[in-house]
Computed example of a mutant assay.
Amino acid sequence: MIRYDVKCSGGHRFEVALPSMFSENPLCQCGAETARIPSRVNTAGAASPGPSRDDMPMTWRGTNNGDRELIRSWHKKMVQREKLEEKYPELAGDRRPVLAHEGAFASAPVRAGDAIAGDLAKETFGKPPVDEAKKS
């Protein structure tokens, strides 16, 4: 059975179940002819991955000075997000630690494993990262 919304020439609207799409439209209770009309769009079941890790607050002020309800809400959202990322790893994004994110790197943060990471560590700390030091 297929459900259709129908409207008669008198303006009455109702829903009917028909055995197939080729079935004739039923008459209205008032006796007028009916025509099928488009059903309303139902968006209640729309899929959404929800907020990502980048959307969650990262500072004390961002959590409204440690508001428990806000933190609890974000924790719940992130637990749901982790479950989704386990099922669909492509949603996880880049999870490598950020090494530099201020100044010249504000628009493109340097992450662990980037080609520039070794040079950045050498310039900042005067020695290469641990992995490169073992190689030489």
Rank of each mutant, 00 (worst) to 15 (best):
I2E: 08
R3S: 12
D5F: 02
K7M: 14
C8P: 01
C8G: 02
C8Q: 02
S9M: 01
S9I: 03
G10A: 14
G11C: 03
G11M: 03
R13W: 02
A17Y: 03
A17Q: 11
L18W: 01
P19I: 01
P19G: 05
P19V: 04
P19W: 01
F22S: 11
S23Q: 07
S23V: 02
S23H: 10
S23D: 15
E24V: 03
P26I: 07
L27T: 12
C28D: 04
G31Q: 03
A32P: 00
T34A: 02
A35N: 04
A35E: 13
R36E: 08
I37C: 04
P38V: 05
S39V: 01
R40W: 04
N42G: 02
A44T: 14
A44D: 15
G45E: 12
G45V: 05
A47V: 13
S48W: 10
S48H: 14
S48C: 12
P49T: 08
G50A: 11
G50L: 10
P51F: 07
S52I: 02
R53P: 00
R53W: 13
D54Q: 13
D55R: 04
P57G: 06
T59A: 09
R61Q: 13
R61M: 09
G62L: 05
G66R: 04
R68L: 11
R68I: 04
E69A: 12
L70Q: 09
L70V: 13
I71N: 00
I71A: 04
R72I: 00
S73P: 00
S73A: 12
W74E: 00
K77H: 03
K77T: 00
M78A: 00
M78P: 00
M78T: 00
E82P: 00
E82A: 13
K83W: 05
K83R: 13
L84F: 10
L84S: 05
L84D: 03
E86A: 14
K87V: 05
Y88D: 11
P89I: 06
L91I: 09
L91A: 06
A92I: 06
G93S: 10
D94E: 11
D94L: 09
D94W: 08
P97T: 10
A100N: 04
H101Y: 11
H101G: 15
E102Q: 12
E102R: 12
G103E: 09
A104L: 12
A104E: 15
F105M: 04
A106K: 15
A106T: 11
A108K: 15
A108T: 13
P109V: 08
V110C: 10
R111H: 15
A112R: 14
A112D: 12
A112E: 15
G113D: 10
I116Q: 07
I116H: 04
I116G: 03
G118W: 01
G118K: 11
G118N: 13
L120C: 08
A121N: 09
A121D: 08
A121E: 12
K122V: 11
K122G: 01
T124L: 14
F125D: 10
F125E: 08
P128I: 01
P129H: 06
P129W: 02
V130A: 13
D131C: 03
E132R: 13
K135L: 12
